[in-house]
Amino acid sequence: MKQVFTRRSATMLLFLAVAFPESLLGQQTSDRLTLYFSEVRAGKNPAIPNEVLKADHAKAVLTALATYQSDTLASVRLKVYTIEHRLGHESKQGAVRQVAVDKLVQGARDKDSGNAGLALDYLTTFGKDDFTAASKDSLRNILRTNPAHIDQVFKLIGFLELADVKETIRPYTLAGNPQAVRWAALVSLARMNDLPAINEVMRRVRKLPVNDDVIYKIFPDLVYTRHTEAIRYMVEVLYSDEKNCLSADAEREEPIPCAYRIMEQLAPIIDGYPLPLDESGDIKTNDYQAALKKVREWFSKHRNYTVLRDRF
């Protein structure tokens, strides 16, 4: 009898999880979620309740959010994407992260352009393993609809290395498309090791002067490509002592070598990087001159360094 009861109980719990996900949230969490979205609908901007963000509630909350994700108010859907991102990004469980990613990919179809863009931005914070085959297929389908944020879709597809859609992207690199779209298509293809694309990217980049504008606007895309030639060029510039950039202190701007910025940009993507990183991937140092010297010496000794490709 005890075994039969246990099986029936398990079956009932499974039924409740599918049919009534809020039943597994706990009454307090469910009430907090309801109250939170009631305030959002009223035009307020409440903080997300801590109860809703608890790790042990993540799966149930993600399921319960489906109702709110189909809400007619864009402001409600926007908050849904934020909660999904928080739950997924902070979870140590792969299954939870995958559910969050699947839901955010759905959000990339949001009829509100701002919401769709936010969902796409959130997706860039996840790793490759967090994208299921279904979520990848959804991104392929979104690409075919020529979405408002097609440049962001290009980059996600490049990051995931969905090489089967390379020829769908390639026409967007041609004249007649907006410059930002052409560039995003090129770097996306470069991320997928497309030789004509990386050649065109580097042809353009090498013609530009190295200064703050290029370091902040162009070099992050070189990092994104993870391509050997692009990273090698960044390391080449890392050795320059020309003071073509400005210090970050707005009240006391001084010319400094752009190498300091490049040192920071390379840190999260090089395996075994010689400087410690904080949780956000930024370097931790109080002596930038010594840090730059250490990085230069490291690259001189490790010419066959490995570029990490598991993150966006």
Rank of each mutant, 00 (worst) to 15 (best):
P49S: 14
G43C: 04
Q27L: 07
R32M: 11
G26Q: 02
A60V: 06
K44W: 01
A47Y: 00
T29W: 02
L24C: 03
T34C: 02
S23A: 12
S30T: 03
H57S: 13
P46K: 02
Y36D: 07
Y36H: 14
A58Q: 10
A55V: 11
K44V: 04
K54T: 13
A60L: 03
N50M: 08
L24Y: 02
L33R: 05
A42T: 09
K54W: 05
L25K: 03
Y36F: 15
I48R: 01
L25Q: 03
F37W: 04
P49Q: 11
Q27A: 11
L53A: 10
N50A: 12
A60D: 14
V40E: 01
R32L: 12
K44S: 13
L24D: 07
T29M: 08
A42S: 15
A55I: 07
P49F: 10
E51N: 09
R41C: 08
H57K: 15
Q28G: 06
H57Y: 10
D56M: 09
L33F: 05
E39Y: 05
G43W: 04
R32G: 08
E39N: 12
I48V: 11
E22K: 06
P49E: 11
D31M: 02
P49L: 12
I48C: 01
A42K: 12
F37T: 07
P49H: 13
P49C: 13
G43H: 02
N50L: 13
V40G: 02
Q27M: 03
E51K: 13
T29K: 10
Q28M: 04
K44I: 02
A47I: 04
K59P: 03
E51Y: 05
G43E: 05
F37R: 06
S30A: 15
V52R: 10
S38L: 13
K59R: 13
N50C: 06
S38C: 08
R32I: 06
A58E: 10
Y36L: 09
L24G: 15
L33D: 08
T29P: 03
D31S: 10
A55K: 13
L35S: 14
K54R: 15
D56W: 05
L53N: 04
S23D: 04
H57F: 08
D31N: 08
Q28I: 06
D31Q: 07
T29V: 15
P46W: 01
